[in-house]
Design a protein around this nucleic acid. Structure first.
Lengths: 137, 137
DNA sequence: TCTATTGTCTCCAGTCACTGGAGAGTCAAG
DNA sequence: CTTGACTCTCCAGTGACTGGAGACAATAGA
């Protein structure tokens, strides 16, 4: 399987597959005579695994860790659960942040007439609040 | 006001304030004899405005646009509302994505015993799904 | 007045996870 | 034999900072 076939099967851009090989996340198992990367089903499964994990927001380093566990026949599910639970907490934090942003912005938009006059509650609302809504990045 | 005072007042790191000056987003209105950036209340208000807008997820370029409107006495609130509404839609999309991630991951974690055995529904769940949950980045 | 500390300056490099593009080589079809 | 699609490597750029080096400025205490 050449790289574009693997890329198709995994649902990832060719560039990304090559990148994952470069950083040693999912290596191509072999090269053809002409120097083309050659993939097999097992490496495609790993690519799919990484794609899914990335979609869940796991970082490349976390993917590496999960991939080790994925390949380790003697892994304990506790290790995986620990990583996944941490990620779930991050998701929940992000959800709360997003909710308060949503509410506040929706409120400002709602208060804005959207006409041609210079008076604008959104601008005022962005400029005037106190500086305690931190810890967002 | 030196840069650290402005940084404090605005709730932004010094490095970031300097960065915003470098990219011409919020310039320091003057320099002292010794070459120190000197800020006044008006520029601090702009820094606060940018911090708030960034917290809402507006990009630097959007901040630039909003800041122009913020400074423009003849702006129409329609312009601002357009930008803000676009951003609100993005937030809502992100919320929906996050919700489905949350549900799916929570489901996997729930199904995982978290013991010392190698059987793990999270690993299986990450590896096995179809490739149609795209468009997340 | 000297010194030590703290603040600030510029400039360069690194982060993360890719993405785009140049220029060259490989492969299969017609 | 040529064309076009595919692939290779390498380099640079993205966004929004962040960290650090080395040098200069300002201030407080002895």
């Amino acid at each position: 399987m050449n790289i574009s076939a693997a890329s198709n099967a995994a649902g990832l851009p060719v560039k990304t597959v090559r990148y994952y090989a470069d950083i040693g996340l999912v290596a191509a198992p072999a090269r053809s005579e002409g120097g083309y990367r050659t993939y097999d089903d097992s490496s495609v499964r790993k690519l799919v695994f990484v794609r899914r994990a990335r979609e869940f927001g796991f970082s490349i380093e976390e993917c590496r860790e999960l991939l080790d566990l994925y390949e380790d026949q003697h892994r304990s599910s506790a290790d995986v659960k620990r990583i996944a639970s941490k990620r779930l907490e991050e998701i929940e934090t992000k959800q709360r942040e997003l909710q308060s942003l949503h509410d506040e912005l929706a409120h400002l938009i709602d208060a804005c007439k959207g006409d041609d006059r210079p008076d604008c509650p959104i601008i005022d609302g962005l400029g005037n609040r106190r500086a305690d809504a931190r810890g967002l990045r």
